[in-house]
Design a protein around this nucleic acid. Structure first.
Length: 463
RNA sequence: UCCUCAGUAGCUCAGUGGUAGAGCGUCCGACUGUUAAUCGGAUGGUCGCUGGUUCGAGCCCAGCCUGGGGAGCCA
C-alpha cells in the first residue's frame, strides 16, 4: 500500500478508507485495553493519533517509545476523542527504527531553545523547529515566485571570489596550501596557491550580479554568503543566505518600490500557505506575529531620508546613548526608535552620508559638499533592525574611479567592474536581504541561530 | 571583541557557610477512549573547571571554560 503523508490524511483523508503512514512517535499513552501514539512526519504541525488495540498489537506497541520511527496501516476513522477530526485505527504497527526512551533527549515537554541548539540533529523533530523550517521553505519558494513572475533571472554568483565587496565585512580565506606545514604563514606564496592569488568565500554576490543585470536587465541571486566577523549576536551568522536583486534602468525609488512589494508578497504567501505554523508562532513565540504580518501586507512602508531621520531623532524626547548628529551611522537604538516607536512599521531610510557608505553607491547630485549623500536605502524592521540594505549604483565611470581612489582602493583591481561603466553603462540599483532575518521577522523567533537548521557562528560548526 | 547575567539530576529550576532538593522526564504499579492524562512508588548528582579562604564551600575570592541578553560590525 502506498504511504500517505500525515498532513494529507488530516486535511483530506476520507473516513473509512484503509491507509498507511510512516513517521516518528511524539508521545505514547498506554491504557488497559487501548494505546495511543501521536505520529508526526514533518508534513504539518499536527501529529496524527494512532489507536492501538492492546490485545492484538500490544507486543508491538511495547517496543515503541517516544522518538521511534514507525509504520502504521489501518483504517482512517472519525475520532471518538476530542482534539482531532480523524484518527487511525491501527491494523498493523511496525517498528522501523527504535529509540531508547531513557536516553532520547526530546521529552514530552517544552525545551529551551538553548538546549535544543545543542542537539541540532534532533531539534527538527520538535513542533517549533518543524514550523520554522516549513515557513523557511515557504519563504524561499515565495521569493523565487516573486522574481520569476516579474521576469527576473535567477543567477548563480560564485562562492569563491578574489574580489572584495568593500564594507561587507571580514572574509574567510580559501586555500589549497597545506597550512599545517611548519614555517607558515611567513613563507605563504599565493602564486603557488590554487588560484594563484588569495581567494575568499564571498561576502556578497552584488558585483557579479551587476554584471548579469547589465545583460539580462533584471536578475537576482539567492544563495549562501559568508562573513568571518567575530559577531556574537541574535542576528548574525558566519554562514547565511542572502537574496540580492539587481535591476538595470532602475533608480533608488524603483529599488525601494521593489523591496516593499517583495516583502509584502512573501508575507502574504506564507500566511496563506502556512496558517497553522503561523498561528503556532503567534501563540507560542510572539503574540505580535500575526499583527506584524498584517501591518507588512496592508500598510505602506514609511519612507524618509537620512536627514529627516536625524531630525526625527533630534526632536524626540528620548535620550540616546549615542548622541544624534548628522553624519553618524544610525545605531541600533536609533533604528529601533524609528521602526518600533515612531513609525511602528517598516521604515525605508534613503540618502545616507557618503562617508558611512560603500564606494559603489551613487553620489547624489547637487548636495552641499559638507553634506554629500549617496543613493543608499536601508529598510528597518521592528524587532529586527536592518533587514534590507540597498543602493543605486554609481554608473558614471569618472566618479566611480574617484570614489575608489578616495577610499584607498586600486581601480586596476576593479577593471571589470569599471568596464561595465565603459560599455553601455546604465543607471541600476539593487538590494540585499538577509534571508534568516526575514524568517526571524516572519516567525518572531528571537535568535537567528534558530531559523537555520545548522547555524555557523564563532566557535560553533558542530552539525 | 566589549558590557552584563547565568552554569546544581536527562530537562526546567530552588537552595547564600553546617546531612543535596522540587517539578517534569524515565521505569514499575493502579486507573482511564487517552491527548501537557491522572494517582502511587522507584530511579536519578564530578553542584562547569582549576586553584584559594575556612574547622567546614553548591554558597565566599581569583582565573579559566560554556551559555543567555545587550553593544559594536552587518544582512
Amino acid at each position: 500500500m502506498a504511504h500517505t503523508r500525515i498532513g494529507d490524511l488530516l486535511k483530506n483523508g476520507t473516513v473509512g478508507t484503509l491507509i498507511s503512514l510512516q513517521g516518528w512517535v511524539r508521545t505514547k499513552r498506554e491504557g488497559k485495553g487501548v494505546g495511543f501514539l501521536e505520529v508526526n512526519d514533518g508534513s504539518c504541525l499536527a501529529s496524527i493519533q494512532v489507536v492501538v488495540d492492546l490485545e492484538s498489537l500490544g507486543d508491538a506497541l511495547r517496543q515503541v517509545a517516544t522518538g521511534a520511527a514507525v509504520q502504521v496501516a489501518g483504517c482512517l476513522v472519525t475520532s471518538q476523542g476530542k482534539g482531532q477530526r480523524v484518527e487511525v485505527q491501527a491494523q498493523t504497527l511496525t517498528l522501523v527504527g527504535p529509540a531508547d526512551a531513557e536516553t532520547y533527549p526530546l521529552q514530552k515537554k517544552r525545551h529551551s531553545f538553548e538546549f535544543l541548539r545543542e542537539i541540532a540533529h534532533l531539534r527538527p523533530r520538535t513542533n517549533s523547529f518543524g514550523a520554522v523550517f516549513r515557513v523557511r521553505n515557504a519563504c524561499a519558494m515565495a521569493i523565487h515566485e516573486f522574481f520569476q513572475e516579474r521576469g527576473f533571472l535567477w543567477v548563480h554568483t560564485p562562492l569563491i571570489t578574489t574580489s572584495d565587496c568593500e564594507g561587507a565585512g571580514e572574509r574567510f580565506q580559501v586555500t589549497s596550501l597545506n597550512l599545517t606545514q611548519p614555517g607558515l604563514p611567513s613563507t605563504l606564496d599565493f602564486a603557488a596557491d590554487f588560484f594563484g592569488r588569495p581567494a575568499y568565500l564571498t561576502v556578497s554576490g552584488q558585483l557579479e550580479a551587476e554584471i548579469m543585470a547589465l545583460a539580462f536587465t533584471n536578475v537576482y541571486t539567492f544563495g549562501p554568503t559568508f562573513r568571518a566577523e567575530n559577531s556574537n549576536t541574535s542576528r548574525h551568522l558566519a554562514e547565511f543566505w542572502m537574496v540580492e536583486p539587481e535591476m538595470a534602468f532602475c533608480d533608488l525609488e524603483g529599488d525601494a518600490d521593489l523591496a516593499e512589494a517583495f516583502l509584502k508578497h512573501i508575507f502574504r504567501a506564507v500566511l496563506e500557505r502556512c496558517p497553522e505554523d503561523m498561528a503556532f508562532f503567534q501563540e507560542r513565540i510572539s503574540d505580535r506575529v500575526l499583527a506584524n504580518a498584517q501591518t507588512i501586507i496592508e500598510q505602506p512602508f514609511a519612507r524618509i531620508t537620512y536627514t529627516e531621520a536625524i531630525a526625527i531623532l533630534e526632536q524626540s524626547d528620548r535620550s540616546f546613548a549615542f548622541p544624534v548628529q548628522w553624519g553618524m551611522d544610525l545605531q541600533s537604538e536609533h533604528e529601533r526608535f524609528l521602526a518600533e516607536v515612531h513609525f511602528q512599521r517598516p521604515v525605508v531610510v534613503m540618502d545616507y552620508p557618503a562617508g558611512i557608505k560603500a564606494f559603489y553607491m551613487r553620489l547624489n547630485d547637487g548636495d552641499d559638499p559638507q553634506r554629500q549623500t549617496v543613493r543608499a536605502m536601508d529598510i528597518l524592521a521592528p524587532g529586527i533592525g536592518e533587514i534590507v540594505g540597498g543602493s543605486q549604483r554609481e554608473e558614471r565611470l569618472e566618479i566611480l574611479e574617484q570614489r575608489l581612489e578616495s577610499v584607498g582602493l586600486h581601480p586596476a583591481d576593479y577593471w571589470w567592474y569599471l568596464d561595465l561603466r565603459r560599455f553601455g553603462s546604465v543607471p541600476h540599483a539593487g538590494f540585499g536581504l538577509g534571508f534568516e532575518r526575514l524568517v526571524q521577522f516572519m516567525t518572531g523567533m528571537g535568535n537567528i541561530r534558530d531559523v537555520i537548521p545548522f547555524p555557523r557562528y564563532p566557535q560553533n560548526a558542530e552539525f
